[in-house]
Structures are given as C-alpha cells and as structure tokens.
C-alpha cells in the first residue's frame, strides 16, 4: 500500500490496495455499476448508511454485484 499522507487514505478495496483522496464512502461509489451492495470490514452497510460512512486507514471494503450461482 502507498504511504499514508494527510490527504490520502489507504484501504483494501475488493481485496486490492487502494489509495483514496476522500474518506467518505459515498465519494467512492460512483465508479461502481448498480446494483451493488457494500460490506465494510466484513459487516453489511445498508444503502441508507452510505452517506455519513467514514472510511479509515486499513479498512476492508467489499462491493459486490450479482453473478451466476448454483
């Protein structure tokens, strides 16, 4: 992961290291296609909770979408 600075934040996004410039979850989401659901550090984050959810260094963020399954 990149070195943490005052203006950046290093997290794990879908299992990969990611450096963010904003700690607001809501700022990260536009890059993902709907429908998706979010878990932060293994816990579900409901859509109504997106605004106001603050990320911190080392967080593990999972964003999932439908796939085929048996």
């Amino acid at each position: 992961m990149a070195e943490v600075t005052d203006t950046t934040l290093n997290i794990w996004l879908n299992g990969k290291a990611e450096t963010l410039t904003s700690g607001e979850l809501i700022d990260l989401l536009p890059r993902f296609k709907s429908p998706f659901a979010v878990a932060l550090n293994g816990h579900f984050i409901a859509a109504v909770q997106y605004p106001g959810t603050q990320l911190k260094a080392g967080d593990q963020l999972d964003i999932v979408s439908p796939i085929a399954g048996g």
Partner: peptide
C-alpha cells in the same frame, strides 16, 4: 444466483 466482488474491468455481469 450469488454475489461476488464487482470488477469494473470484467464485462458480462450486467448482461447476466
């Protein structure tokens, strides 16, 4: 069906 991490570089999920 199921859920998996969304990978924007992979196409096909939306079609499914």
């Amino acid at each position: 069906l199921s859920l998996r991490r969304q990978a924007p570089e992979q196409q096909g999920g939306e079609q499914f």
